[in-house]
Amino acid sequence: MSSKQLLRAYTYAIALLLYTPIAFMVVSSFNSSPYVGVWEGFTTYWYQLLLRDSEAHIALVNSLTIAIVSSTLSVSIALLAALQVRGRRLTAVDALVYPPIVMPEVAEAVALFLAFTYLGVEKGWLTVMLGHTAFNLAFAYVTLTVSRVRFEELEDAARTLGAGRLRIFKDIILPLAMPGIVAALAITFLLSFTNFIKTLFTTGPGFYTLPILIWNRARRPGISEFASQNALNALATLVTLTALSIAVAYTAYMLRKARR
């Protein structure tokens, strides 16, 4: 076997390993037994159970609303800045934006916890959302400015053709900035939707998102039927599928953009 074939076999083996646990999780979620590893036949029972799982419903609503609000908010704010900054390098702004990305998440989470506690804010939806927005702002800004399109000349061209500010924004800047905006929205949405650590430190009693719910059940599996291993696998499968479908839609959008 040539070294190329060896490397190729190895690469696909690693890829397989990477997906084995996820595949296993999906298969297990259709197992009649509440325990993994004991196959007792095919069932969709765990998914039906999810329909009755009011905790999961609350968690889903919380996760979705927080992710939607936080990503929209942070992308809007970052877009406003990114469009004006454009080609220029604003060292001062860059210097403010990078620390939230570099700082260890646990430390940032502790900081948020202490600040909210100090202010005496009741922890819940708002504190979690604001906590997510803190780092989403940074990621949105970086994503939007990495694809720095040079608009100046195009704007100049539009101006000589008689276009005013509003027209230029609507017809030139926005369409060209769109791929960056979509990327920033997708990334911040998923960062927020799947965030665990910051949520853990900024949430209050009785408020939970999907990752928090999964965490609580994963640490004490079997405490109730909802928390049985394979019920949890069903829930995790759904969350994974949600994330994956966003990823697929995003990749398809970007490929289409790239081809056009």
Partner: peptide
């Protein structure tokens, strides 16, 4: 301002949309 001058300009690197 440029948008009220009625000039047609071809830019050095064209600046097509």
């Amino acid at each position: 301002p440029a948008e009220r001058r009625d000039v047609g300009m071809v830019f050095q690197d064209l600046a097509l949309f």
